[in-house]
Computed example of a mutant assay.
Amino acid sequence: MPYYHVAKAPQPGGDHEVHQQGCMYMPAPADCLPLGRHPTCHGALARARERYARAVGCYWCCLECHPGPEPDHALTTPGVPGHRD
């Protein structure tokens, strides 16, 4: 089962992203709260929302729990799948 974390600091839109451990977009461990092991991102998201009502899944590691289109950093980060030159 994957281990999940939620970012303490919100994204510019106010959402706190939930990440699987090892995600390249996960903040440093000191900047995250551990959510524990969950079979899917849905359990981790429910746990994160106990603390942050506006928690969402990361587009890259929790796509099933991500609410919208790809994030802006996908357009500007070389070497990331989906990067647009």
Rank of each mutant, 00 (worst) to 15 (best):
H16E: 06
D31N: 15
R37E: 14
L35S: 09
R84C: 13
K8C: 09
Y59C: 10
A28N: 13
A46R: 09
D85Q: 12
A74K: 14
P12K: 06
G57I: 01
H19C: 08
T40F: 03
C58G: 03
G43T: 05
Y59A: 10
R54A: 14
R49P: 04
W60I: 13
P71W: 05
P69Q: 14
P2A: 14
L63F: 10
H5F: 15
L45G: 05
G22Q: 10
L63A: 08
P2R: 00
G36I: 04
P34L: 02
H66N: 15
D85L: 04
P2M: 08
L33M: 13
A44F: 03
H83N: 10
T40A: 06
Y4A: 02
K8Q: 07
L33C: 15
G57C: 01
L45R: 01
H16L: 10
P29D: 13
H42V: 04
P27G: 07
Y59P: 00
G79C: 09
C61H: 08
D72Y: 11
G43L: 04
P34W: 07
Y4N: 03
G22F: 12
P71V: 01
P67Q: 03
V6S: 06
R54G: 02
A9N: 05
C41K: 01
P39E: 13
P39Q: 06
G14N: 07
G82E: 07
C41H: 06
D85E: 08
A48S: 07
A74Q: 01
V80G: 09
A9H: 14
Y3H: 15
A30R: 14
Q11G: 04
A55I: 03
G82A: 02
L63I: 01
G43P: 12
P29C: 01
G82D: 12
Y3K: 10
A53T: 09
G36L: 11
K8E: 14
M24L: 14
P29H: 09
A9W: 09
E70Q: 12
M24Y: 11
V80K: 00
C23P: 06
E50T: 12
C58R: 10
Q21V: 12
A28V: 02
H16I: 01
P10T: 02
K8P: 02
A53L: 12
T77W: 01
Q21R: 06
Q11E: 12
M1Q: 09
R51D: 12
M24F: 03
H73R: 06
T77C: 06
P29T: 07
Y52E: 05
M24D: 10
P69D: 15
E70K: 08
M24Q: 13
L75I: 02
A55D: 05
D15Q: 14
H19A: 06
A44P: 04
T77Q: 05
C58I: 01
H38M: 04
Y4W: 12
P29Y: 08
A48W: 07
H5C: 08
C62E: 02
E70H: 14
T77N: 02
H83L: 00
H38F: 11
R47Y: 01
R37K: 13
P69K: 12
V56T: 00
G43N: 05
A44I: 00
A9G: 00
P10Y: 06
E50G: 11
H5P: 06
A46L: 10
P10C: 05
